[in-house]
Design a binder for these strands. Structure first.
Lengths: 65, 65
DNA sequence: CACCTTTGTAAAGCGTGCTTTACGTTGAGG
DNA sequence: CCTCAACGTAAAGCACGCTTTACAAAGGTG
């Protein structure tokens, strides 16, 4: 599962800590998501998409088989 | 997080076991999702939405605070 | 009645999602 | 040179997502 979190965050001029605060998660979580260490939970994916005003499908791209 | 899995499954005339086979998960997982015992992982949410030809946002509805 | 399908549930087990605390590196600015 | 912000990473710990095996209850069909 790839995602566009880093680009979206940088477009807003936010640090990882800024984004973490907006999402209500830890900075380490934002870092792990950006670096693809794991996928967010579905509720967190919703929070991220809503924060950036996008559909989940536009923020996250399932890796094709 | 509410979801429309049961209605979508029934519209297709599928049993929980049928849906589980289409998704590649266990029947117990489908049952747990329909009954709201927990939320699916993001990849599984993608599989469900794609199987029914819908957007994730149309299958899953985050509970509002 | 006997059987079969469907659904609900439980327990044990494994990997993942997220936390807190903590430390190392890099780059910009005094 | 020193400092500070930002990022990357690690370890321990807890809760969740999903598995397998297993059993019980309800409804239809022979």
């Amino acid at each position: 599962m790839n995602n566009s979190i880093q680009q979206l965050r940088q477009q807003h001029g936010w640090s990882q800590a800024d984004l973490a605060r907006h999402l209500g998660v830890s900075r380490q979580t934002v870092n792990a998501l950006e670096r693809g260490r794991y996928d967010p939970s579905l509720p967190l994916a919703f929070s991220i998409a809503r924060l950036f005003g996008m559909a989940i499908e536009d923020v996250f791209q399932p890796v094709r088989d």
